[in-house]
Design a protein around this nucleic acid. Structure first.
Lengths: 132, 132
DNA sequence: CTGAATCCTTCAGGATACTG
DNA sequence: CAGTATCCTGAAGGATTCAG
């Protein structure tokens, strides 16, 4: 999520708006996908890369670091050759994943309704352009 | 939800698509705040502007349009002078708001744990820099 | 295999000014 | 009151390359 030229520090912002703090954990194009992909046990880097359709190696790495930093992911390095690194959710993240499941469920249930609403809205706007 | 010997790849691909759609509706700095602020009945534009700390008039307007387009907000114009416009959640959005409440609750419960994890992570990184 | 480093583009979002 | 229009910045994210 872009914050533009906001001058407010993170500390002040999160204190003022806890809602934003939630979003920051889940924000970004890939966080939910990573959390979902890692929810059912230890997963290797390459497995995640293959599982999450369209993610770049860079973004996967960046997001894994951020999630690990926030205490949502456990990173386990097996000192073998070739290296083997596994990621899994912390208990805290497991809870988060449960909430996210609710979101996913909502999206599945209303996906077509949203598409329809959007189409209706757009045709209405187009008609106004014709009329005006 | 697949478990056990189901391969991660298959489990995630089927979820990753709606996941992206969810995120698109909730993405952005203000969507959750707007949905939360409008959840308890019709709210006027200026009321939202005051309720949501730090939002600009432009972003409020843009997000209201987007939410309305997706069928999450109802926009009611009262042809009075001065103009009066009220926003309220559609039933679909009410359900979404229920899920979002879970997210907010999660954030409140684990906020300090996240801050602590972050501090630990950062000090560990700093120590490695010193050692190296 | 698991990354980190670098460069580059896109776009959300802030500041500001204007309008019915 | 409830917006729209314009300009601009900074962060997200993609592509590519290098490394342990």
């Amino acid at each position: 999520m872009s914050r533009g030229n906001t001058r407010v520090t993170d500390a002040v912002r999160t204190e003022a708006c806890p809602v934003t703090e939630v979003l920051d954990r889940v924000a970004g194009k890939w966080s939910i996908g990573i959390l979902t992909a890692a929810a059912h046990g230890p997963v290797r880097f390459t497995e995640l890369e293959r599982a999450i359709n369209g993610i770049s190696r860079r973004m996967l790495s960046l997001n894994l670091r951020r999630l690990e930093r926030d205490g949502l992911l456990i990173r386990t390095v097996h000192p073998t050759v070739p290296p083997k690194v596994e990621y899994s959710l912390t208990p805290m993240a497991q809870e988060l994943h449960a909430s996210l499941t609710g979101l996913v469920s909502w999206a599945e249930r209303h996906r077509s309704a949203i598409a329809e609403a959007r189409a209706t809205y757009d045709t209405a706007a187009a008609r106004e352009l014709d009329a005006g």
